[in-house]
Write a protein that binds this DNA or RNA. Structure first.
Length: 419
DNA sequence: TCTGGGGTCCTAGGACCC
DNA sequence: TCTGGGGTCCTAGGACCC
């Protein structure tokens, strides 16, 4: 039996945990650069603010109803997430952290429906009491059914939904729209609707070959999982990443080469630090720039350039050298740039990297320097010590106009309680 | 005025190998 | 006139997830 535990309106719930005045009010948390609504309280959903919608489109509603718009605070959400995830081992050792606000749990052995429901309720009440975050719990004999259960749980009074192992569950699956099935996105949902498939039960009963032809083996698996045939297994040891990306929109449109170059240098530094944090090295790097596609009156340019490293590396100055060389090749004046980014590609574990006979970089020395830098930045904040290429000017940073404090990860952010 | 960021997987088709 | 069979690797594009 699988359970899927999903935090309700996670980012908003984290903010409310530290600011009780937000309870009962419409609240949204915005994406980077204060662009889109990525988490909404139930009150904000009720006002019609859509998921991932640019918030300026709702400025009238925001004003009229006093919607609280907060910048995202990933240091806070990441820390709360870790605390929640660490609780699940109380119920089972088989835990897969699926995203910042979701985890799969697996329960072996036979249990009755009421026994399962008891566990689900216990998980819910414990997480709420110990962390202050409300969660929904869905259960089923496959991951896809557990996911379906959690969708249905959100609408239920108890916040839990068990799709019993020995039952058809047809009535439950009938009330789930096909686009709410895990693995079915907008494109497939539209196509399925056109073929008369509207609910999870329609999809479950559809012809396997017909589905496979259009939706490939992936869609076929989803169908079988809804029928209770396990095709998607638990990932108890998360596989290493294959790519790593750091990209940001700018706080304003940039035209000067120096400014775009500086942003890219900083993103490169941060990406390299992430890479070292995961004990990986990259074999190549891709640099890309973007103009603003929504400004159709402006000329558009979206170049990218990939270069191979002579030796797999995670050393910042070495990566910077190649990334900035790639940048110099693709940058063209005369455009208004909105975004820049770097992808580190073909990642492999540090200790499995292929060495190069004619390597002329002193890697021991460079690695010691990186370890020292990472240590200092870990202790005093991630931008304490860095390379000058990314830190000369300041005017291009993304907007975070209404960001709350790092209540749980920084002494300066500690909540002050006054009488 | 204002539109996020980070990932994965699958397939088809072409190049190339023996 | 008749023109094999089996395989790998790479890339672009499209779908999905949060």
């Amino acid at each position: 039996m699988f359970a899927l535990v999903d935090c309700n309106n996670f980012y908003v719930s984290c903010e409310r945990r530290f600011n009780p005045k937000l309870k009962g009010r419409p609240v949204v948390v915005l994406s980077n650069n204060d662009g889109c609504a990525v988490s909404r309280s139930n009150e904000a959903k009720a006002l019609g603010i859509e998921m991932a919608a640019p918030i300026f489109k709702f400025k009238d509603i925001v004003k009229k109803h006093g919607v609280v718009c907060l910048s995202s605070n990933y240091a806070l959400y990441g820390d709360i997430s870790r605390r929640i995830m660490s609780l699940f081992e109380r119920w089972t050792p088989d835990v897969e952290v699926y995203s910042i606000d979701e985890a799969f749990l697996r329960f072996n052995g036979k249990r009755s429906e009421s026994g399962l429901e008891q566990i689900a309720k216990e998980i819910r009440s414990t997480v709420l009491q110990w962390t202050g975050i409300p969660v929904s719990v869905g259960m089923g004999i496959t991951k896809t059914l557990a996911k379906a259960g959690s969708k249905l749980a959100k609408k239920s009074e108890s916040g839990v939904m068990v799709l019993a192992p020995d039952k058809e569950n047809a009535s439950h699956l009938e009330s789930l729209k096909v686009e709410d099935v895990w693995g079915i996105g907008r494109q497939y949902a539209r196509w399925l609707n056109n073929h008369g498939i509207h609910t999870a039960i329609d999809f479950r009963n559809a012809d396997e070959q017909f589905i496979r032809q259009k939706m490939t083996v992936v869609g076929h698996r989803t169908l079988l999982e809804l029928r209770g045939i396990e095709c998607i297994t638990m990932e108890l040891n998360p596989p290493n990443k294959k790519t790593l990306c750091h990209a940001r929109s700018f706080g304003r449109l940039l035209e000067s080469k120096d400014e775009v170059r500086e942003s890219l240098a900083l993103y490169t530094e941060l990406a390299a630090a992430k890479l070292r944090g995961e004990c990986l090295v990259a074999q190549s790097v891709c640099v890309f720039l973007e103009t603003n596609p929504f400004r159709t009156q402006d000329p558009q340019y979206r170049p990218s350039k990939t270069v191979e490293f002579p030796v797999p590396t995670n050393i910042t100055p070495e990566i910077l050298k190649y990334a900035l060389a790639a940048f110099d090749l693709i940058f063209r004046p005369g455009y208004k740039y909105k975004k820049a980014g770097i992808l580190l590609l073909e990642l492999v574990p540090e200790d499995q990297a292929q060495a190069e006979l004619f390597d002329n970089v002193n890697r021991d020395q460079a690695n010691r320097l990186m370890t020292a830098m990472d240590g200092i930045n870990k202790k005093h904040g991630r931008e304490t010590l860095g390379f000058s290429a990314g830190r000369i000017r300041d005017g291009w940073q993304p907007k975070f106009e209404n960001r709350t404090a790092n209540y749980t990860t920084s002494w300066n952010g500690l909540l002050v309680v006054s009488s």
